[in-house]
Write a protein that binds this DNA or RNA. Structure first.
Lengths: 211, 211, 211, 211
DNA sequence: GATGAATGAGCTTTCATTCAT
DNA sequence: GATGAATGAAAGCTCATTCAT
């Protein structure tokens, strides 16, 4: 008879895979993919090396599973989707706050992705092509709806949208990871509000005074 | 008597170290620190493995030297320094363009830094503390001079300044490295101008410069 | 009370052992002993790894059982026994044909024995001592009866008999396994007849049977 | 300066490769290719694992080099070439003796080839196609020259030639390796002479007495 | 100074074997 | 009886580092 009942088997198996993936993500974020041995992953997951290989056929496969499971990017689309009914101002503020929260909740993955991005430039390109580009288009379309095509001739909504994401990400990295908050104390609402407000006025331009 | 005068010898020694550091930076940016062997670095530098170890006692020491030599961050201060006499608008545009050019010229280092940042979080923190924070203060002070303390109560100049840098960096990464330009064609002036303009209107808020 | 009568249980047990041994023989002949995992043997036998170990305590024990069960050599005696009533010429032809057929029917075992013979040289020696040597004596005695002791002083009947077996085996190996038949097409009757005829004339020497 | 003078370098390198190949051949013949670790080969060659990999890039490459270096088969052609001027009888006796001596001098290789033949059936097929088949043709042509096409219609010279080789090989294996000589004492000249004589009369058939 | 042959620790991965269920 | 998850020793192979020349 098996160690766990047949009905529980799949749940157990998936649970193990999740534990391993989480352990791997944590260690890789700390020490890097190459520099972290499978033995270390196994130990962190509380199993033996051999057992680890029952759940993932290779280190590369484990990496791929981790990246698939915890992919940051698909959620960018979700973030924009949730803001449908709001005013432009609220939508921008909401998006920035949601993005920040999302980054906070996926600290390890941000680190891992950052680290492995240059090594997996092809994978990164694919991700960019299939996820970032459509998401960017979505944001640009939204901006055009809100701000008019005329403003779109002055600034690139594509650039503006991607710039907003960049602003959030780098502020998150410096604040949370590098501990810049210790030296330049700004709290989280102040950050997200400033980002949103600067972006808002920025993209709207001198619209009302321009006339 | 030595074959070459002491000063020549030092120059030769430093030249070698530079050649090695440059070769290492190039290879590491391409393939990653862990995945690049010292043999490959030696070959790229045109010397033998044994000779490489005459100039750097270990792989780790070579990494530290490379990061020390080619640190991106000190130059942020230079960038701001050059914009002293300009109008606020020209200064922002100039800063963004200069930053973009700087990133282009240090593509390899950007990749390496990105990759090794999470592993060297203490070093990164030190860099942040000694370089980013003062630079950020510099920019914030400049913004306050230009826009007035009143506006500073509405938005955080610290956040705005750091956000500007983030915008530039992430746009550079997506555009140059991920080939996003292939799918969403925007040329470089359009990018830097949009960043500058959005930032300008964004930080100014409802309209007029203090002047 | 046991679920099945003791005799049935034994029959079941032996049946299982046979299934496993046959599966192992097949896989080992294909891929080699070392390169074939116990998991593969278990799967081929339609049981689990754990169950496999209920029937054989180790991989080595399974190998020993397979070699014991399917030993080729005892059958050489059978082959000679069946030719009792025939004329010398028919006996030789019959023996060669029977040996060839026997090899064809035990292709897997020939491959395995070939492969494992050098590793189990002691076992091979035992087999030689207890089986090959008596069989060889049998053939030599038969040849002496047919050809006379005088001819036996010219050639060694021991050598001749063993040579005949060697001829058959190597021709079988090259023909069936190496696909030599593709390049030098000779069909099976032509082979066995030539072997038998060459041997016949060869051992008879200058001409006539003793008769 | 290198450890060995540049002029000696190649000789040293080749010497090492030879030492390693010999050690590998010996161990593989004893214990089999799969079951012999590279560590064991290195130790037998008196070097470290790492050094072994300086001379051969992989275990497979070492096997290929060993098989290439010590290939038995090309020499079959040599064996036949040396017998050009002799009478048919002397040629056959000479061939058998030379083949036997050749096998004696390459005991380890015979064992290794025997063992790895089933695993490397493709390589074995290539060897058969390129070496055995031409050699076999050579022998058959020679037999036809000596014995006439008429005899060739009665027996297959191809089969006869290959059968001769098989006889020698199997007698060698049983005699030298299995120690059959201990139980059925026949000395080497008796063996080779009997093989040659049986073959001679065999292929000639009742030719001269038949008419 | 310069070299590269030599080393061995350490990596990923496999697999015979065990044992709780 | 039967199972297969779990183990860990051991394999092939890489590479940072050393050192005799």
């Amino acid at each position: 008879m098996p160690k766990v009942a047949a009905s529980e088997r799949d749940a157990f198996y998936e649970g193990r895979r999740t534990e391993i993936a989480e352990a791997a993500l944590r260690l890789w974020a700390e020490g890097g993919f190459d520099a972290t041995s499978m033995a270390a992953v196994a130990e962190a997951a509380g199993i033996s090396k051999g057992t680890l290989y029952l759940y993932f056929p290779s280190k590369q496969a484990l990496l791929e599973e981790v990246l698939r499971r915890y992919s940051l990017l698909p959620n960018i689309q979700n973030l924009t989707a949730n803001l449908a009914g709001l005013s432009f101002e609220d939508a921008v503020h909401g998006f920035v706050r949601a993005a920040w929260r999302h980054l906070s909740e996926h600290r390890d993955l941000v680190l891992l992705a950052l680290r492995e991005l240059p090594s997996n430039i092809d994978r990164a390109r694919q991700a960019a092509e299939h996820i970032l580009v459509p998401a960017n288009r979505l944001i640009a379309t939204y901006l055009e709806q809100q701000l008019g095509a005329e403003r779109g001739r002055e600034i690139s909504f594509i650039v503006a949208g991607r710039g907003l994401i960049g602003t959030v990400i780098l502020l998150f990295l410096t604040q949370e990871m590098l501990g810049a908050g210790r030296f330049l104390p700004v709290d989280e609402p102040q950050i997200t509000d400033t980002i949103a407000q600067v972006f808002l006025h920025g993209v709207m331009g001198s619209g009302e005074t321009k006339g």
